[in-house]
Design a protein around this nucleic acid. Structure first.
Lengths: 306, 306
DNA sequence: TCACACCATGAAAGATATTTTCCTTTGGGG
DNA sequence: CCCCAAAGGAAAATATCTTTCATGGTGTGA
């Protein structure tokens, strides 16, 4: 009853059941060393940790009770007790469905069939994590803003630039006024045009890509509604974002760069945005969709073959 | 530490995870009235009870803490705390089992949370299908050709153009000579340059996109090794492809255009190609990967955190 | 290079929750 | 009508969790 003030911002998300593993990976980078140890223990062995008391977990990770509680808080739970319950739930879920060796890292000498299996598994995992961790309230707000927008600008560079293009293509197809920028100068130049009913969307996995943050900041300061799609919801980009959509981060390795899973995750978010907007603007979106389908038809050879 | 004697007989069964409901039914008859109330509450609403403390559950059932603990013991747990963990697990399992209509089509009036769930499910399904259907022999052959190539050209337009870009980015990052074309004229112009040790890759979902088939044909006729990534392995494009990599096609609908799942599928194939090539050229790929990572690092703000 | 400020961290005090103890109540036999 | 035994609950005792506070390390700016 005394936390009205200090927790007002943390109220964002009620605890997560299966999204925990995802949340851990998402937040680990922004954690301190001790908290990382706790988070890793928790993610690594949910069942084992659920059996431990705060003190036990603190000893196991070589930290203190306070740190354990802090970690639980950071992960979105009111305290350790609740984290523990979530852990028990996670353990029970893992119990039911598990797959053995596809979870291993991709090695240099893996046969090609293993590569396929592992990549597919990892990407499926990424999708599940993303869906579980996605804040539907934020998503809904972003959708509403986009659907009502006069104009939408999207910023993304590098791998995220492709995601930006994907979103661009989709939104254009349902008749919205959209632009995507990968050139930071042009992006800023255009951002100054944005006003109240406009939306700016920044896509950056790291959450700290200056080239993308800068135009978002400008848009933000000009009163546009700003959306960030990022793997680091606490990163610098969030500062200028009215709505933050968190993408999940899978473990990465030399042969599986972070870009791979972040892209999968970002694309899911983008798809959700698209479908959400299409729903809200169904009256105009539906005809636009079939029109663009028709338009493409004659670009294909008359008979698609056997 | 003092319970050696009195619990010696109760040690028979370690706590039950999902068998809880059954155990309750079995034992209810032998319970006293108050304990029955507790047991029924627990069996009736595991999730709800898991959220309660002993005191809370005692009040809810109109009994006392002692009775709650006694019930927990009777059910085979050391105490209420452990019963509560089991309850949380049970709740989580029930939760995961109850994804009723994720297999249904996306409707215009689906709440946003359903959209997320359905999209994620569909894309996971697409990945599984693709991985299962992918011909690893063809894939291996394509990988070998790319790894040995002097030069690689990629063709893709529209949504597939983004996939082409993705592959381009990845292969460039490990030091290959790659180009991607979405302009059909330029593509053909460049295709005539290709020779024996070169590789041309066409990406088209329909398998009948003229703008992409044409350059592939030219490359094929000039003796390059040609690869097609398509959802129609018997379509026109296959005609000029030495290796056909089949992407899967999920059912589509108005709100979920084919482009969405084909993209997911294509990207998985592209990732497999990339990892395969990276494995085969590990000596040069590994340093190139870390080099590009380093190069990017200073594009981000120094401290990403919080 | 030094001083400063800040933040992460753990020890221990403080607050809650759980378990145990023990006493009261209730409902049968004798 | 009395006594016993089992059931149930109040409250003490304990374990567990949470908060506070002091300390040490780290990085920054002069």
């Amino acid at each position: 009853m005394t936390d009205d003030v200090k927790e007002s911002f943390a109220r964002e998300a009620p605890p997560a059941p299966a999204a925990l593993a995802a949340k851990v990976r998402t937040l680990v980078p922004s954690m301190t060393r001790s908290m990382q140890r706790v988070a890793e223990a928790v993610a690594g062995d949910p069942a084992g940790c659920a059996a431990l008391t705060v003190t036990g977990l603190a000893e196991l990770t070589g930290t203190s009770e306070a740190t354990v509680v802090r970690t639980a808080r950071l992960l979105g739970y009111p305290g350790y007790r609740d984290l523990r319950l979530a852990l028990a739930g996670l353990a029970a879920q893992q119990q039911s469905g598990r797959s053995p060796s596809v979870t291993a890292d991709i090695a240099v000498d893996d046969p090609i069939a293993d590569v396929v299996a592992k990549l597919a598994y990892d990407e499926q995992q990424t999708l599940a994590d993303t869906a579980a961790a996605l804040d539907t309230v934020q998503l809904g707000a972003a959708v509403a803003a986009i659907a009502a927008a006069r104009r939408v600008d999207i910023y993304g560079v590098g791998a995220s630039g492709l995601v930006a293009q994907d979103l661009l293509q989709k939104l254009m197809r349902i008749g919205l006024m959209v632009h995507a920028h990968s050139d930071p100068h042009l992006a800023v130049t255009n951002a100054v045009q944005l006003r109240g009913k406009d939306v700016a969307i920044a896509i950056t996995h790291s959450g700290s890509t200056g080239d993308v943050i800068e135009p978002l900041r400008v848009a933000f300061e000009h009163g546009a509604t700003t959306v960030a799609i990022t793997g680091r919801p606490n990163g610098p980009v969030a500062q200028y974002a009215d709505h933050v959509l968190t993408t999940s981060t899978a473990r990465e390795s030399e042969l599986r760069p972070a870009a791979m899973s972040s892209r999968t995750s970002q694309l899911l978010v983008v798809d959700c945005l698209f479908v959400g907007v299409a729903q809200r603007t169904y009256e105009t979106a539906a005809p636009a969709l079939s029109a663009s389908y028709e338009a493409l038809a004659h670009r294909h050879s008359p008979r698609g073959g056997r």
